[in-house]
Amino acid sequence: MMMNRKLLVPLLVFALLMMLLAFGFSLRDPHYLPSELIDRPFPAFALADLHWPDRELTEDAVRGNISLVNIWATWCPNCLVEHPELMRISSEEDIPLIGVNYNDESAAARAWLNRYGNPYEFSIVDDAGRLAIDLGVYGAPETFIVDSNGVIRYRHVGPVTREVWGEILSPVIKQIGTPG
């Protein structure tokens, strides 16, 4: 009887290991990377406006209001997925949308906005991807919530859907909007 009990030990260890691994794998999405930029000011930049190439935009352009800064590109399929929701936000919600056109051709980007509609107040031309690197971006689309002082408060990776707006972005914006 004593011998039998000893035989169960490896099984028990195995079961424990399995439980630990199952827990580890369910912990979180491995693609989710915490942003280093939360509560840091929006990085400095000096880039052209997509529609007025002579106009230079700087980090001052994202100050003054709570705004959504959306990283987008014509080569990015998920940008098309989130586009209807961005159009809805721009017409129905009280928050300005600022685009960062990431690693793209400006002519193609303008044509894309003409075809599908332009939800952005303006789009920053980041054709070398430098601003995106300063933002810690590793793909598109990504969306940042920037407060009126130009401080990054939240980052969402992946398309903004109706659910993402309702469950994540909108509550964060409300919380920032109410002082204290």
Binding site: L33, P34, E36, I133
Partner: peptide, 8 residues
């Protein structure tokens, strides 16, 4: 790189 992308 660490400032922008973190420990990862």
């Amino acid at each position: 790189m660490h400032q922008r992308y973190g420990d990862f």
